[in-house]
Amino acid sequence: MQRRFQDIELGDELPEYAPDISLSAVRSFAEAVGVGRVGRFTDHEQARREGLPGAIVPGIMSQGILAAMIHKWAPGCQIRKLDTVFRAPIVVDSQARCRGVITETEPDASSVDIDLTIVNEAGETRVLGTATVRI
């Protein structure tokens, strides 16, 4: 369903999105972007040897996941900017959730600003950021 700018209000929340960050999904992504041999993304044991709690989701995959959430909410929209801060690693095979909420609406540009977060099972923010999206 195409989303219309005039139907969007400050404070609207995007539907929460549970991304697939299973080891197989992350390995597929890592291979596709050329980091398939980087153990901290694709091998829990190797990641633990490096001092991590397990294999971690690549940052660009987190960005892709957030972009996917936005496009699921507003198919056909144009993401003008996606800016993320990586606070803590997201562990592969965990249950992460992505959230978004509208924090600005710009009628002249037909665009909105969205606060974005990825949280872990404990509700702790691992990635935060913002997007500017033309509807």
Partner: peptide, 17 residues
Amino acid sequence: DDGRAKVSSYCRWIHKR
């Protein structure tokens, strides 16, 4: 460096919510 909020947006958000 890790802040992503405009102060004007904080103000609008406080009133809206």
